[in-house]
Amino acid sequence: MSKRALEGKLAVVAGFTDPTAALEQYPTPPDLAAHIVHLADLRGDVAGHTVVDLGAGTGMFALGAALRGAARVVGLELDRDALAVARANERRVGARTPIHWVNADATRAPLCFGEPDAATPDAITVLMNPPFGAQSGNEHADRRFLETVASFADVSYSLHNAGSEEFVESFVDDAGGEVTDAFRATFALDRQFDHQTAERRELDAEAYRIEWD
Score class of each variant (00 low, 15 high):
172 V>G: 00
161 N>G: 11
25 Q>W: 11
135 Q>R: 15
105 D>I: 12
104 A>D: 03
8 G>M: 13
81 D>E: 15
75 G>E: 01
159 L>T: 12
19 P>D: 05
149 V>Q: 02
144 R>G: 03
160 H>Y: 08
11 A>S: 15
94 G>K: 12
103 N>D: 09
48 G>Q: 06
133 G>R: 01
63 L>G: 01
162 A>I: 14
111 L>R: 11
32 L>W: 07
58 T>D: 00
102 V>A: 05
144 R>L: 14
167 F>M: 09
90 E>N: 04
65 A>C: 09
151 S>A: 14
210 I>N: 00
195 H>D: 04
44 G>W: 04
10 L>D: 01
5 A>D: 14
16 F>A: 02
192 Q>G: 10
176 G>C: 11
162 A>R: 05
93 V>G: 13
148 T>Y: 03
61 F>R: 01
125 T>S: 01
54 L>P: 00
102 V>W: 04
58 T>E: 01
112 C>F: 11
4 R>I: 05
4 R>S: 11
60 M>G: 00
204 D>I: 12
207 A>T: 15
27 P>W: 03
194 D>C: 02
106 A>G: 14
143 R>F: 09
105 D>K: 15
185 A>F: 09
206 E>T: 15
105 D>T: 10
190 D>S: 15
28 T>Q: 02
13 V>F: 06
3 K>L: 01
23 L>N: 02
141 A>F: 09
27 P>S: 10
123 A>R: 15
83 L>R: 04
66 A>L: 12
50 T>E: 01
113 F>L: 07
43 R>D: 08
8 G>E: 14
79 D>Q: 13
97 T>L: 09
49 H>K: 13
138 N>T: 13
115 E>P: 09
111 L>H: 08
45 D>M: 04
62 A>M: 01
110 P>D: 04
181 D>Q: 11
209 R>H: 04
36 I>W: 02
42 L>R: 10
19 P>S: 10
174 D>L: 06
179 V>C: 11
184 R>P: 11
60 M>Y: 00
29 P>A: 09
33 A>M: 02
90 E>A: 08
133 G>Q: 07
125 T>Y: 02
101 W>N: 10
207 A>R: 02
186 T>D: 15
1 M>K: 14
164 S>Y: 13
53 D>Q: 05
174 D>V: 04
146 L>F: 09
92 R>Q: 13
118 A>P: 06
115 E>Y: 06
182 A>Q: 12
122 D>Q: 11
133 G>E: 07
22 A>P: 05
84 A>F: 14
30 P>R: 15
143 R>M: 13
172 V>R: 04
151 S>H: 05
192 Q>D: 06
188 A>P: 14
19 P>T: 12
61 F>A: 00
160 H>W: 12
105 D>M: 13
59 G>I: 13
43 R>P: 08
198 A>H: 11
102 V>T: 07
120 T>Y: 07
158 S>H: 03
130 P>H: 03
109 A>T: 01
128 M>F: 06
52 V>N: 07
112 C>I: 03
179 V>Q: 03
196 Q>G: 04
179 V>D: 01
141 A>I: 08
174 D>H: 08
145 F>Y: 04
117 D>Y: 09
114 G>N: 03
21 A>R: 15
199 E>R: 15
187 F>V: 15
45 D>S: 00
164 S>G: 06
134 A>V: 11
